[in-house]
Design a binder for these strands. Structure first.
Lengths: 205, 205
DNA sequence: AATGTTACCGAACGCTCGCTCGGTATTCAT
DNA sequence: ATGAATACCGAGCGAGCGTTCGGTAACATT
């Protein structure tokens, strides 16, 4: 675990507000352009005051990503029932992801697009949770492939398929209008249907 | 068209080298962290010398994106044969995109992830080409949907489906190893098959 | 031979950045 | 009552940023 400036109780209003403000500004302006000064002002803190809660700007980004990604993974893990078919679990993963999107758009955006800005131990520590989330999806997709392809030589690569799905999910930040995010249930079904059954007629293949 | 510092002949070695170096550094470090100093040094130019070719850092990003995106769209347009079925045209779009990826990875990455850094007229000018590229994909997908869904109420939204596809394509920059990019043909087929026919058995739907 | 254009460069300006330092008011424990 | 911990703040440092300015050598034109 990377060095943390201070161990704080998780119920700290100021701390949470700073994270929320930082997520908003970093999501809008990018990590480099979102200055400590701007984050402090919008949190009603002085710049120096910020450093009571975070040891550096990178530490702030790290806390934000770790907190968000952990919440996303836990939200999924809590819902996944091993009794469900892999197809149903895939739909659940997608709708969980999109639901999380509506609730924590800024935070998720920062996780998706700024995670390469972390280096060294900060990076690796977040990467652990990231990989965990990936592994869940990867396992589901592998089970789906088992049913259709078995050990066939034409079986597609499950890791890449998982990446294709995450591409679709993460790219939503780039085009979906903040306010019009009402069709999330429809979208979750659309994406699941596309990945599972395709958009073209099966018999013309 | 945004103000251009200078109209230069397109066959200018120095100019091309600066664009190539800038693409490499911006792809690696991001637009803000890739400094004019670093770009100049790697181009064997002084900082001041750079401003002979570009009026500002934003102008440099604009030139890079416009040049790259135009080449991508033209490459696709030249290959698209209206005689082909929409399914075949979709495969062609995907393999053209991935082939362009292998040849101009840095440039494409900058187009995908830094296009929001342009503002005003710079942004809109690139957006025109971007939209053109989108429209081509959108049209193809609409034709595919026509065959399966017609006017059915359950027909999925073609714009969103197009965005899902671009998400998959653009996200490849985030995970594909530079050197190991040998399976591009396999990947193009994988993506096309996933989008067109899905990864699960059709009869268990 | 004189003039203009092209293709640069060294130096520096003004600004913003992340971060630190010394201090302070408030709360809490002894 | 006193000392320590908590939760900050004002001011400023040094570094790096994009950009500009005044110059200049090489070449082309007249």
């Amino acid at each position: 675990m990377p060095p943390q400036h201070k161990i704080l109780p998780s119920t700290n209003e100021r701390y949470d507000e700073v994270l929320s403000v930082a997520a908003r500004l970093i999501a809008r302006d990018g990590f480099e352009k979102a200055s400590i000064r701007a984050i402090a002002e919008n949190s009603k803190l002085s710049q120096a005051g910020l450093y009571y809660y975070f040891s550096s700007k990178e530490d702030l980004l790290y806390q934000l990503q770790k907190h968000t990604f952990t919440a996303l993974r836990n939200s999924l893990a809590a819902r996944l029932d091993p009794e469900l078919s892999p197809e149903q679990r895939l739909k659940l993963l997608i709708s969980n992801h999109l639901e999380f999107f509506t609730k924590h758009m800024n935070e998720l955006r920062v996780c998706a697009f700024e995670f390469q800005k972390l280096i060294g131990k900060y990076y690796e520590d977040v990467q652990v949770i990231r990989r965990d989330y990936f592994r869940i999806a990867h396992t589901i997709i592998n089970e789906i492939l088992d049913k259709k392809w078995g050990d066939s030589l034409r079986r597609p690569d499950s890791r890449r398929l998982t990446m294709y799905l995450f591409g679709t999910l993460n790219w939503i930040h780039m085009w979906l209008d903040t306010d019009r995010a009402t069709d999330l249930d429809t979208m979750a079904e659309e994406i699941a249907d596309m990945v599972l059954y395709g958009i073209a007629r099966g018999d013309t293949k």
